[in-house]
Design a protein around this nucleic acid. Structure first.
Lengths: 354, 354
DNA sequence: CTGTTAGCGCTTTCAC
DNA sequence: GTGAAAGCGCTAACAG
């Protein structure tokens, strides 16, 4: 079943059939109708590959993520694909597995598929590969790691604001011994969060102890390990800000395992607001970064881009918001011993449903 | 950059270059080397679409899932893709969103992409669509919902065994008041589990009360609702078997919300062993069905299939195993009074590490 | 082992 | 508004 058979059946040329299906040129309503009828009758639909081959446009976007198994991504993928489908684009999703070597293969695959644009949603990144893409005038959009330029848009998450929100929340609850489990120092986004944490504390005149900054890996195991280190401290923190939710989940697990009650003895706050977080016991207080927004911006950045141009290239800022659930509460009352605390905040406002 | 330029640069014909890249026919090592050199120098790689168009094979498999956002699937997708990539196949993943109407569009998309085979991993299914696929001699493999036949393989999960394992576990702990939160009665796999539950109990001479069977939706909310119904019963169960892990997570949440301690007052057991389950508090006891195995069998079923033939078509059985974690424990000691008081159990034995 | 050649099914000038 | 015809880049006989 091909375009010519339809053409014959409708008594027109294949060019006309093509025009009908691609809407690339006006066609007489009469003939259009005949074509549609013939097509339906024959059960015809265009061959994607032939179409791509001859048009030179693949109508597909590459979507590079770290790992579909990381709960941050499925949402994003699904949302992105939804937009793409709406505009008749396909999405080719590739996992880097957090590995820059594999990223190279990914880019290669995308190139083979002649993608019309690439959204790079990983937190790690390889400048060399960007060049490869960029040199071919393929529109690019980064999550957080790119610089706006020719063909390149970027989506910036307002980490600073998010972290400030979190710290304020903790401060209002009365915490002073606040620790951080940071992400891998190799990730720009993790460093940004770390810096925001430090400056937030400074701004509020809270002294930050060196030993209160630990390093995780943005995974559950890293959170567990770091939390254990924190709990081993002679004077452990009463609240811990985690670089992402997975880290917080690991921290929660470590606390639980050691019999430390969250939130009555220890407050925990995450970042991202993955679905899972709301299901933990207790549900995690976290900073939400809207995947809905990211997906939309990312798609639109590609769709609006004009290949080989600096026009229509932009930096988009994604807001962050505090989702107060039940993993945060006022710090435990001082037990009379040395570590005296000042604030006494009785109301566990964050425990209210919201 | 195309095959001809490489051919020219290497001083051979395009057919030879093609042979080198597809390994479709032996080529003199000398010339092969020259071709590779030329290709590398020119930065050449084959155009997927041209290749597909002329060969008539797309080297892509369709993978139909319900929802990438359901934690059961990302694993499966990733594993399947890994195998596919290894054999130089692409995977086109499509979500039905549990909707048979959308499934039709999915199949259409797969058809447009001329997939060489389709793995249907959804629990719902639409016979009409199967026909469409099957009539075109596209090899198919189902998870649990198919009948082996021409072009059709099936993967059967040994639910009976899994459920029996779960029930035995509960029985050994001393439970007698065992309830079930079943999945949607429209899903074959849910019904199978329900039946297995009933017959397991019968085999062990445990009386099953009618009100102990509740219906969820294989999602968290359904689990919550059903658990609440169960807890409202005058004589609530001491253990609940859930049709899948998401249901169990909902049940856990409901229990927690109402102050019912798991596992000291209530044992919960899930099904699937999604990653999340190990991270809950307490970590969920569950029946694991190996996604690793499913992905491998599914891919191989397609890869080994001979289009248009009944040969190499098979039913594969996937074993299930009990993963005993900490959401199950002996039932609370009867407190002497009939129904009136809630059980008072001091020791949270299951909280010990194991 | 290698070259020649005819398409794969569609889009896209370029005429009319 | 429509048709003719030239490819898009590759594969697959078929010769040699």
């Amino acid at each position: 079943m091909n375009i010519r058979q339809v053409a014959k059946a409708a008594g027109v040329s294949s060019a006309t059939v093509s025009r009908v299906f691609t809407r690339s040129a006006p066609v007489d309503p009469q003939t259009e109708h005949r074509v549609h009828k013939a097509a339906k009758q024959l059960g015809y639909f265009p061959n994607t590959y032939a179409r791509i081959l001859s048009s030179g446009k693949s109508y597909t976007y590459g979507l590079i993520i770290s790992d579909i198994t990381n709960p941050f991504f499925p949402d994003l993928v699904k949302l992105f694909e939804r937009h793409a489908l709406e505009y008749d684009y396909e999405t080719l999703v590739v996992d880097t597995d957090y590995d820059l070597k594999r990223m190279e293969q990914c880019v290669r695959r995308l190139l083979e598929h002649k993608v019309d644009g690439v959204a790079i949603m990983t937190s790690e990144m390889e400048p060399k590969l960007i060049q490869i893409l960029s040199r071919r005038d393929i529109p690019l959009v980064f999550l957080d790691t790119g610089k706006v330029g020719r063909n390149i848009s970027n989506i910036t998450i307002d980490y600073e604001h998010g972290i400030a929100l979190a710290i304020d929340h903790l401060l209002q609850l009365g915490h002073e011994r606040i620790a951080l489990i940071q992400g891998p120092p190799t990730l720009k986004s993790a460093v940004t969060r770390r810096n925001a944490f430090i400056s937030s504390l400074k701004r509020q005149n809270i002294t930050l102890r060196r030993e209160y900054i630990r390093t995780g890996n943005h995974g559950v195991d890293g959170g567990q390990a770091a939390m254990n280190e924190l709990l081993d401290l002679p004077s452990p923190p009463t609240a811990v800000m985690c670089s992402n939710d997975l880290t917080a989940i690991g921290a929660l697990d470590a606390a639980y395992t050691r019999g430390v009650q969250v939130p009555s003895e220890l407050s925990l706050i995450g970042f991202d607001d993955i679905q899972l977080s709301g299901l933990m016991q207790p549900p995690l207080t976290t900073i939400r970064v809207s995947r809905v927004e990211i997906a939309l911006r990312a798609f639109m950045a590609l769709y609006d881009a004009i290949p080989g141009s600096r026009k229509r290239t932009a930096n988009h800022i994604i807001a962050t918001e505090l989702i107060a659930r039940r993993s945060t509460a006022p710090p435990p009352k001082p037990s009379g011993e040395s570590q005296s605390t000042k604030h006494t905040v009785g109301v566990r406002s964050a425990q209210n449903k919201n």
